[in-house]
């Protein structure tokens, strides 16, 4: 059993966790809205702020929202950053540079291209020496991140921050990598409950093949299916509903992770 102490969210029509409570509970109220340009996070020093990309800003913004909801100091909290594809804008820019005769790879692009760049910026923003991991498991990245976070809580961490984010593809890439929308979320988990706790989660990998929980609204379901990190949506909707329920998240080999929210 682990506890949810704060959530962050950013996706089309879901501008933050706080501002999305109504649409997550009454999904019919959701409307697609293109995300506004995300300002560089002011928790970063100016020289680092300048180098941030949209992908990094998204991850840092949701991490911050999840942390702000609790009285925890980010400095002491280990983190798991899950993303199927990482900073794809940067990967694409580098590939385009490599297709030119002089191969003019931007040093800043290369420096931001590592999968753990958001984790690096987050640790700098919070002067945090805490351990951080950055993982990918394609369309089960959020689920693998949740499993990893829970394994760290069972191994002795009292709190852990899980961040999941993926950025949409450009027109160049949309056929090869059909990620249509941006999506980022963060969940601050803990071993013990506190006054901040929103709910508890019990997770159980299920070995039989099974379907996953869908979103009721066709638009939100489209979002869920077209961004690997958005597979978190049914869990976020259940947490938002504030009542007991089970969510089946996609896992590998056509299996699911059963998450009991209580």
């Amino acid at each position: 059993m682990v506890y949810v102490n704060g959530v962050g969210l950013l996706a089309p029509g879901l501008p933050s966790w706080q501002a999305s409570q109504t649409v997550l509970c009454d999904q019919q109220a959701w409307q697609f809205e293109t995300l506004d340009k995300i300002p560089a996070p002011d928790i970063l020093p100016a020289n680092e702020r300048r180098r941030t990309s949209a992908f990094i800003r998204m991850a840092v913004k949701v991490a911050q929202e999840a942390l702000d909801a609790s009285d925890q100091n980010a400095k002491n909290i280990p983190s798991v950053f899950a993303s199927s594809c990482g900073d794809f804008d940067v990967v694409q820019s580098i590939c385009i540079a490599l297709s030119m005769p002089e191969k003019p790879v931007s040093p800043t692009h290369f420096h931001n291209s590592v999968h753990n760049a958001p984790a690096g910026y987050w640790s700098i923003a919070n002067s945090s020496p805490s351990a951080s991991t950055s993982i990918s498991a394609a369309y089960s990245s959020f689920t693998a991140g949740l499993l990893d976070a829970v394994s760290q809580l069972r191994a002795g961490a009292t709190h852990i921050l899980l961040v999941a984010s993926d950025i949409h593809s450009s027109d160049i890439y949309i056929k090869a990598r059909a990620v249509k929308y941006p999506f980022a979320c963060a969940i601050l988990l803990s071993v013990g409950s506190s006054q901040d706790s929103l709910c508890e989660l019990a997770i159980q990998p299920r070995m039989e093949k099974s379907g996953t929980t869908k979103m009721q609204h066709a638009g939100l379901e489209d979002l869920r299916l077209n961004n690997p990190s958005a597979s978190a949506l049914p869990l976020l909707a259940q947490i938002s509903a504030g009542k007991k329920g089970e969510v089946l998240l996609p896992y590998q080999h056509d299996r699911v992770l059963n998450v009991a929210v209580g």
Partner: peptide, 10 residues
């Protein structure tokens, strides 16, 4: 077919 993940921290 156990849990699988890639860690990519450079």
């Amino acid at each position: 077919s156990g849990p699988a993940q890639v860690i990519s921290t450079a």
